[in-house]
Design a binder for these strands. Structure first.
Lengths: 114, 114
DNA sequence: TATAGCGCTTTGAAATGTCAAGCGCTTGAT
DNA sequence: ATCAAGCGCTTGACATTTCAAAGCGCTATA
């Protein structure tokens, strides 16, 4: 009944494996989720995802930008504001975020305390 | 500065946040994916997901069992074999895994070679 | 002038993950 | 009977990641 490939194959697994590793980075999903609501600046983003310190956030954003999930734009106006926006690939992660939201709502609404 | 609570206090967000944090544990998704093919023993599982050392795997399995994603069963036969199986909640994660697979296949097939 | 906001970076310490090795056990080959 | 090999882990030392706190240069507002 599993619709997944039964045998782990190196070729096909590679992309998936890479995707999993990417999404396993701490705060990655929260960042994407926050940006799904629209572009945000650095501190605004930090506040929106709640409790991520700037060092980690900075590194994560850099990594995500390098992978093409989001892009960083700096306004050259004079208070130079930064703006992080999801790319097409980043917005496509909405499906993943939605799946996680559905799962979380259903399977750990009450049990998530220990 | 004033009112920025260090503790997440919105109920609805909590489940989703918790789900994300859970899935962000290293090897978690790989473990679930491997178990979607059917129950496996410890070493078999380790080999299936490729490159996870026993210490981490052990800790992760314990955490996942505590959260009700999978269950551990020990056969009392005489080479006492262990068997890790997904619970209903665990199998429901298939939707998440599938979403990630689709995204990975589509958005990082060529870039992820290394 | 002072305060607060912006976008970060730097600093140790703490949590987390990794590697190598090994333990008790049993089975299968020599 | 002996030995290597597999099972399911645990341990202890080490590397990486994340943390909270503070601070920096800047500007706009009070």
């Amino acid at each position: 009944m599993s619709a997944t490939p039964a045998t782990p194959r190196s070729d096909e697994l590679c992309a998936v494996h890479e995707a999993m590793r990417l999404l396993q980075g701490k705060w990655t999903l929260q960042i994407v989720r926050a940006l799904l609501d629209g572009p945000r600046g650095f501190n605004d983003l930090a506040r929106a995802i709640g409790g991520c310190n700037p060092a980690t956030l900075s590194r994560r954003l850099e990594a995500l930008a390098a992978l093409g999930v989001l892009s960083k734009r700096v306004d050259s106006t004079m208070p130079p504001r930064t703006c992080y926006t999801l790319t097409e690939a980043g917005e496509a992660l909405q499906a993943v975020v939605a799946a996680i939201e559905r799962w979380g709502d259903r399977y750990l609404p009450s049990a998530a305390r220990s």
